[in-house]
Design a binder for these strands. Sequence first.
DNA 1: GTCCAGGCCAGAC
DNA 2: GTCTGGCCTGGA
Length: 315
Amino acid sequence: MNHVITKNKDIYLIGQEDFEPKHIFENGQMFRWTVKDDEYTIVVDKYVSKIKKLNLDEIKNLSQQHDLDLDSESSVVRLQNAGDINDYHQFWHHYFDMDRDYAALRKEFSAIDDYLKKATEFSVGLRVLNQDFWEMVISFIISANNNISRIKNSVSKLSELAGEKLAEIDGVTHYKFPTAKALAQLTPDELSKFAGVGYRAPYIIESAKMIDEGQVNLDQIRTMPYEDAHKEIMRLPGVGPKVADCILLFGDAREIAFPVDTWVIKVMNEYYLGKEKNNKKIKAYGLEYFGQKAGLAQQYLFYHARATNVGAKKK
DNA sequence: GTCCAGGCCAGAC
DNA sequence: GTCTGGCCTGGA
């Protein structure tokens, strides 16, 4: 039975089989992480925390140290510098989407078809995070026609440029994600130069202004039906159909949002459609085929496709 | 040097 | 409405 305990200011998730930090952070939904020796340092909200899935020796040590009986547990995840048990219940529990039964979800997806089954088996422990809506807007504007290492660097630099200082860990200073008001005051030149966002700089600043001035109301968007929300969020410059779906899936937990990116195009053409170039039609097929949880299925497909380089031309 | 990266935008039809 | 070319920039 999985549960949560705290020891020495650390939080431990015990017996949670569907929690693999690598599959959670390295699947393109989250950009504020670094990893060293399988331990992830992440910047989320006001926290700069360390997340690690403990190995057998570490579990044994923890067990002895605190006189616990954890030897039979195959999964212990440690959250360091993440606050106390109240922080867990008020923030982390929802952030990590702990109310969702991912084992049941994988079972459900496995029954749909063999390829999705393979993708879910490949990604046991993947979870779709519930992240800050505003942060997703800017992060995914940056993501367009870009790669993950550059996106990570840009988001980090952007925070350094306009965000509040949080903490210094292992010699690195981390900054909170900036507010819309702070980003709205930057000039495209300084943003482009410092954060390396290139031609996206004016999109970021203009979107920040529209949100700060209330021309686009993110709180209202969250109460809209999916189609309306998707349309409304696209009023922001730099936000097209794919970026809008990422924002809704990762920032507003819209399970139906099905981002069609290069990897999904490859997967869908390789295993489902044959040859379809129209992204709108690919998305329509995805929604029809995978149903209300299309976005969650997309995460398994995307992660597996990218990791295995689906659709690569054989020499 | 070329190509690509979790696409968007403007312009042409 | 659909399709096409161009695009900051860093790394392979």
